[in-house]
Design a protein around this nucleic acid. Structure first.
Lengths: 339, 339
DNA sequence: ATTGGCACTCGGTTGGCGAGAGTGCTGGAG
DNA sequence: CTCCAGCACTCTCGCCAACCGAGTGCCAAT
């Protein structure tokens, strides 16, 4: 009983089941896959695979379907990488390069993933905490309010209002702006706290209060976990006939709306290098036990990960295709990101 | 055969059907609604209502359900306004007032609507074209690129990159910024084109090219239809057991993802005054023929509509409750919006 | 105009039956 | 030791018939 053929059988089962979404039996398998052996032999292999927990049968007299564990083995060892077609690559490139600002880049990336994979796409905005500061702007508004605008080198713009008790003139403001910008230039947003401290200390007494207030607002705004934003696209794909979830799609949609939790999941599973896959019950989120998640980090061209993008679909998904699409978009995105 | 009682019957049918989501028959009706007449009489009224196209029966021996036309009559004449409870109002107020910036306001408004109505919420960002300009910022980035940041009085921030062929010094940039800001102060974004023209004409020759380029980018960016952004929340509500669509929810989800078309629909149906309702086939969008849309404009406290928010659910929805929720959120939103 | 009575219609459910698909097992061949 | 053909067994699915109940429409009586 060759070990190798058993894996061939598993691969054949996964591929067939993904394509037809019907449990696959021994006869069909031998007809469609030139395994060179008879159905009876395949049945023996199947029994072994089932014993190992890699496949299961929905009911006694039905074919087999892969288990989560089976998919895992398939993804790790059996799946053949299938690069995107040239037209697909070109489509990604042109569609992304047409984007006019960061919002546009992120939503377009989402559409792209949703379209290429036929599944749900999740794209995170470049994380503030992993970005650098490009520019800090202070805009006085009518009454005693100050608008603080932070522009990162990944293109994000954040704004906060600040109530300033004392009046201030444009000169002070200009100086403040210049000093802060000089102090922060090139630093990661997480590191500017100390740089700002030096600035505030150097300010003349009468303006020190204002300076500390600004510094506080900026660091507070950028430290907030809640400011991690994501974009969701392609939910309509979940309702396609090809996706039937045992539990219905309610739990899935609900899980997707818990953006904070969802983002946590994605962050945890993404290691810096390349694409990560989480299958079925490997997802700690209850609503996603019938789905698999394929994610990749993306970032500036120097390889730093500043955000995550991913595709979510049923465990019975086209893993090679999805992985290829996610990887490709992540790469192009890294190239296109303002840096 | 009193006309008035016939309408009572219609109202009773709508209310019962909305609550139980089951076709309602003559017996049940008399039991639950103290109409003071017997089932047989109700049957006669029902026959008349059906003749008038206000109700229908799914199959011969089932109760009646309202038609789109029936809902329309109900909404226009029969529905009793039901104000929100005090706790609900308070919840709206506190939840919205906790928002830290415009993004936050819009997403919170969406969550609120989705939660209050148990349906899908659509919230449009304040339209650029109907906003005023608060501040224009020019930020030079490393190479010969200029980042143009536009801040509106509704709190939106838009940004565009601009390639500038010639070198430029901070002084020129500062002057340009000052002039543009002075010229645009207080104007609607749609009107700043002419104001900008005067600025560019007044510039010395060597900087005129740069000035026109900036003016062009700003007006182009703000004129784009595509820059109308919306936020969608509560899709998970569509999958609740209480919502069964004949055609499944695929067409609904698809319609919701066509953001441009959807926004067009909402814009068309919103008249400046108050809440508008569009029922079933009144929606021109094919995917939304089984749904009803309740929208309201919102804007700054002076009553101008700068954006739209709405709730979308099955035609069999709680109209009074939905209308009340949409109206309330729109009002609070108008108060909270920076102005 | 309203009402009680009555025959009728039709969808939904239940139970039984047969066909088909797939399995596990066993015994024999290479 | 591996492979394979044959066979009995199991279980789902689709079909059909029968039945039940809810609800209607109509009519005659008040």
């Amino acid at each position: 009983m060759s070990e190798e053929r058993r894996l061939d059988v598993l691969r054949a089962i996964v591929e067939d089941y993904v394509r037809t979404r019907e449990p696959v039996g021994s006869r069909i398998l031998t007809e469609r896959h030139r395994l060179g052996v008879s159905p009876a032999t395949v049945r023996n292999d199947m029994a072994a695979l089932e014993e190992a927990g890699l496949i299961a049968q929905p009911h006694t007299s039905a074919g087999r379907i892969p288990t989560d564990k089976g998919y895992r083995l398939f993804v790790d060892q059996l799946a053949e990488v299938r690069p995107l077609t040239v037209p697909q690559k070109r489509a990604i490139e042109t569609f992304l390069s047409e984007a006019v600002d960061l919002d546009d880049v992120v939503t377009r990336a989402g559409r792209l993933i949703a379209q290429l994979t036929g599944q749900v796409a999740v794209v995170q905005y470049p994380s503030l905490r992993r970005s650098g500061l490009r520019h800090l702007e202070l805009v006085p508004t009518a009454e005693g309010r100050l608008l603080v605008v932070v522009i990162t080198d990944t293109g994000r713009v954040e704004q906060r209002f600040l109530d300033v008790p004392v009046g201030m003139d444009d000169g002070t403001l200009g100086e403040l702006r210049a000093r802060f910008n000089a102090a922060a230039a090139g630093h990661r947003l997480t590191e500017i706290g100390t740089a700002f401290e030096r600035v505030t200390e150097a300010m003349p007494d009468e303006h020190r209060a204002l300076a500390t207030a600004v510094a506080e607002v900026v660091t507070a705004a950028l430290g907030e976990e809640s400011e991690e934003r994501i974009v969701l696209t392609g939910q309509a794909n979940l309702a396609r006939s090809s996706m039937r979830f045992e539990q219905g799609l309610r739990p899935v949609l609900e899980a997707l709306e818990e953006q904070v939790v969802l983002l946590g999941l994605l962050t945890d599973m993404t290691d810096d290098a390349g694409v990560a896959v989480s299958i079925g019950h490997e997802n700690r989120l209850a609503g996603l036990t019938e789905t698999s998640v394929v994610t990749s980090g993306y970032g500036s061209s120097d390889g730093d990960t500043v955000a995550i993008l991913s595709s979510i679909g049923p465990t019975r998904m086209d893993y090679p295709g999805t992985i290829a699409a996610v990887r490709a978009v992540a790469r192009y995105l890294s190239r296109v990101l303002p840096s």
